[in-house]
């Protein structure tokens, strides 16, 4: 007869020991790399390119306070229309950086099953955030804690950036401003660094 209270007590103790935000509510992380298709269940995601520069040019020219990391990504939803937002860049010191909508950049778009949707996420980050930076992307909006996103799959894509990509350093970032465009369907395969059909 002691077994039932003991089981309830053990379960209660276990739940109180687990950190709420990092375990109980945490999303399902699915790893990936630049150029790989990440299967999230509700959508497929490919990060097609990562560029670094001090300026971006789209709707006017924006000058970085740190450096701009521009991540080109392609979304295709699995079976219905979904909102994808919540783009975050997490650096090796676990600092979280949000995407900006300055110049022609976007922080969110809509993914559909019929075609692939391209979007450029722009992050203005300090140069020391490049080394080991990871991109976290998922459905929903307003950061990873945003509506509809937590407890669902989140793509974690290593961007493969090092300190050598800091503008002004030896290997340098692109000297010219990075051209960015708003979200739009991908019409021709191969024109967007897209290797996955």
């Amino acid at each position: 007869m002691l077994l039932a209270p003991a089981a309830i007590g053990a379960a209660t103790w276990f739940v109180t020991q687990v950190p709420q935000d990092t375990a109980v509510d945490a999303p399902f992380e699915i790893g990936g790399a630049v150029g790989e298709t990440v299967h999230l269940g509700y959508a497929d995601l490919v990060v097609t390119d990562v560029r670094v520069a001090e300026q971006i040019a789209g709707d006017g020219v924006a000058q970085a306070g740190g450096v701009f990391v521009v991540v080109d990504a392609v979304w295709q939803a699995s079976d219905r229309t979904i909102a994808v937002g919540g783009a975050e860049l997490v650096d090796s010191r676990e600092r979280v950086h949000a995407a900006t909508d300055r110049s022609g950049c976007a922080t969110a778009t809509t993914a559909v099953p019929a075609y692939r949707q391209r979007i450029s996420y722009c992050f203005d980050v300090p140069p020391d955030a490049l080394d080991g930076a990871q991109l976290r992307l998922g459905r929903g909006g307003d950061g990873e804690e945003g509506a509809f996103q937590r407890r669902d799959a989140v793509a974690v894509v290593g961007l493969g950036l090092g300190l050598d990509r800091v503008p002004g350093e030896e290997a340098g970032a692109d000297a010219a401003p990075i051209e960015v465009h708003g979200p739009a369907p991908v019409v021709r395969t191969g024109t967007d660094g897209q290797e996955d059909a």
């Binding site: 300026q55 006017g60 306070g65 740190g66 979280v96 992050f123 203005d124 955030a129």
Partner: peptide, 18 residues
């Protein structure tokens, strides 16, 4: 306004100065 580019600022990330 962000004085460097005369544009507006939406987000200020950790470690970045404007």
């Amino acid at each position: 306004y962000n004085i460097a580019d005369a544009g507006e600022l939406d987000v200020i990330n950790p470690g970045v100065t404007y």
